[in-house]
Computed example of a mutant assay.
Amino acid sequence: MCDESALALHELIDDIPAAVHIAVPRGTRRPAVSYPPTVVAQYAPTTFTLGVERFEAAPGETIPMYNAARRVVDAMRHRSRIGETLALSALGPYLRRSGRDGVSQLPYVARELDALSVIRPSVEAVLA
């Protein structure tokens, strides 16, 4: 699970996504899902597993989902696609809730995704 769906499950945004957002490695077949409405994002295979954790969707059933730090970095990277307001609205709650450990995770994830130049000014602005 990724994008807006993961941001909502991490309670980083108040929006209720109109579709379920899932990620698949770039170069693989995109799944055909008739219901519920689904948006498929493709990520580079080398970064596909970065920041993945398990989320309990139902008792005894878990699904892979990007962790909060990865979601915030991806939201900032893709802010032209998902909207800058949504991306910035996820950053504030993440920084307030995650404390120092969370703040230190952002540069690590951003470095791995070559997005440090995008994350650093936004984090500094929110923390100022």
Rank of each mutant, 00 (worst) to 15 (best):
C2A: 13
C2L: 06
C2R: 03
C2G: 03
C2V: 11
D3T: 04
D3N: 11
E4H: 06
A6L: 06
A6V: 05
A8W: 00
H10T: 02
D15W: 02
I16A: 01
P17E: 02
P17F: 05
A19P: 01
A19I: 01
V20F: 03
V20H: 00
H21C: 11
I22S: 02
V24W: 02
P25F: 04
P25N: 04
R26V: 06
G27C: 04
R29F: 09
R30T: 12
P31F: 08
P31E: 07
P31Q: 05
P31W: 05
A32N: 09
V33H: 03
Y35H: 15
Y35F: 15
Y35M: 13
P36D: 08
P36V: 10
P36F: 09
P36Q: 08
P36G: 09
T38C: 12
V39R: 13
V39L: 09
V40A: 04
A41E: 15
A44E: 14
T47G: 10
F48T: 04
L50V: 15
V52M: 13
F55R: 03
E56L: 05
E56H: 01
A58P: 00
A58Q: 09
A58N: 01
A58C: 01
P59C: 11
G60L: 09
T62K: 01
T62N: 01
I63P: 00
P64S: 05
Y66V: 08
A68Y: 04
A69F: 12
R70V: 12
R70T: 14
R70G: 14
R71L: 14
V72A: 09
V72M: 11
D74E: 14
D74Y: 07
A75C: 10
A75I: 11
A75M: 10
M76Q: 13
H78N: 15
R79T: 05
R79I: 08
S80I: 04
S80N: 12
S80K: 11
I82D: 02
I82N: 09
I82T: 07
G83M: 07
G83H: 10
G83R: 09
G83P: 09
T85V: 14
T85I: 10
A87T: 08
L88M: 14
S89V: 00
A90H: 04
L91E: 07
L91Q: 08
G92S: 11
G92N: 03
G92M: 06
P93T: 03
P93Q: 03
P93M: 01
L95C: 05
R96D: 11
R97M: 02
S98V: 00
G99L: 05
D101K: 14
D101H: 13
G102C: 10
G102F: 08
G102R: 12
V103M: 13
S104Q: 15
Q105K: 15
Q105H: 13
Q105R: 15
Q105G: 05
L106R: 06
L106C: 06
Y108D: 14
Y108P: 00
A110T: 07
A110C: 07
R111H: 12
L113W: 12
A115H: 12
A115K: 10
L116W: 13
S117H: 11
S117E: 13
V118Y: 02
I119L: 15
I119E: 07
R120F: 10
P121W: 07
E124P: 00
A125P: 02
A128D: 08
A128I: 01
